[in-house]
Simulated scan of single mutants.
Amino acid sequence: MPVWIRFSYKGLKFLVDSKVGDLYPFIDVFIRRFYDSVEIRSDSIIVDVGAHVGFFTVKAATKAKKGIVIAIEPHPENFRKLLINIKLNNLNNVIPLNLALWDRQGTLKLYNFNLSGIYSVVYPGRQFTLVKANTLDNVLKSLGIDQVDLVKIDVEGAELKVLKGATASLKRRIRSLILEAHSSYAVFSVAKLLKKYNFKVSTLLIPQYTFRRFVRGENLLALLKFEIIDHITRWVEKKTLLRDMTVFVKRTFLAEQQAENKRGEYCVMATKMGGE
């Protein structure tokens, strides 16, 4: 049975599953502040591609109270938690969509790497889930969205495919992007395509991290207010909670560090220049 963890951070509330790496994207968004370099106004229109369980979605939607956040997440279980976290934070400016973005419409195999932060349609694994796929151009057209202030992309190797399905939007709808890439070749390919559509591109190599460099499990727990809930919503004593969460956070970081050491990590930022 999964152990459900409910926690709050700076007034925001989240529910995650302790059996998977749900907390690592939290570290990216709130501790490492991977996306803080982009501007989010109160009326911004934002697309969160690879929304996971909603950490960036919730943070962005809280800032863009008069705007819209389109949260796109293909994995069914992550999407369920995304919906819960949207509801927990009383957000009515989020449009959640349960699908993958690709360069064409169809069905894809979403491979499972046993950590919910590492589901991929590019990197193969033993287990997979069939998911619906569409293009960003089709999604924005169907929603009647004519302008997007920011597109955030975290899709574990599928960045170029997502962008190839957004060529019409890159021409006239999208003002800026921020995305994660896992190799210098991926960065080169993404930058080449974006420059074709008159985007100014900058790249930041994120240093490979260690668990100790960013935050120890004990210190992370001190930042957050945790509650653990089992399948019958029975509360666990605080001492047991801290012990279990410390082990969970350490294991999550160890597994994620091993994955990142294989591929590297880059942040690509792009801003539309004048004209098309």
Rank of each mutant, 00 (worst) to 15 (best):
M1E: 08
F7D: 09
K13L: 13
D22Q: 10
L23D: 05
F26L: 01
V29Q: 12
R33W: 06
Y35H: 10
D36C: 08
E39Y: 05
D48H: 01
T57K: 12
V58Q: 11
A60C: 08
A61I: 00
K65A: 04
G67H: 06
V69E: 07
I72K: 01
E73H: 01
P74M: 05
P74W: 13
L91I: 01
N92T: 15
N93D: 05
P96I: 01
L97C: 04
W102Q: 00
D103I: 03
Q105C: 09
Q105F: 14
Q105P: 02
T107C: 06
K109R: 15
N112R: 10
Y123E: 14
Y123S: 03
Y123F: 04
Q127R: 12
T129G: 05
K132H: 08
N134C: 08
N138V: 04
S142K: 10
G144Y: 00
V155F: 11
E156Y: 09
G165Q: 11
I174M: 03
R175L: 09
S176A: 12
S176W: 01
A181V: 02
A186C: 01
A191P: 02
K192A: 15
L193F: 11
Y197F: 15
Y197M: 07
K200C: 05
L204C: 02
L204V: 01
L205P: 04
P207G: 07
F211Y: 12
F214E: 14
V215I: 15
V215E: 13
H231M: 09
T240I: 15
M245V: 11
V247N: 04
K250Y: 12
E256T: 13
Q258R: 12
Q258N: 06
N261G: 05
C267I: 15
A270I: 02
K272S: 02
G274E: 12
G275L: 09
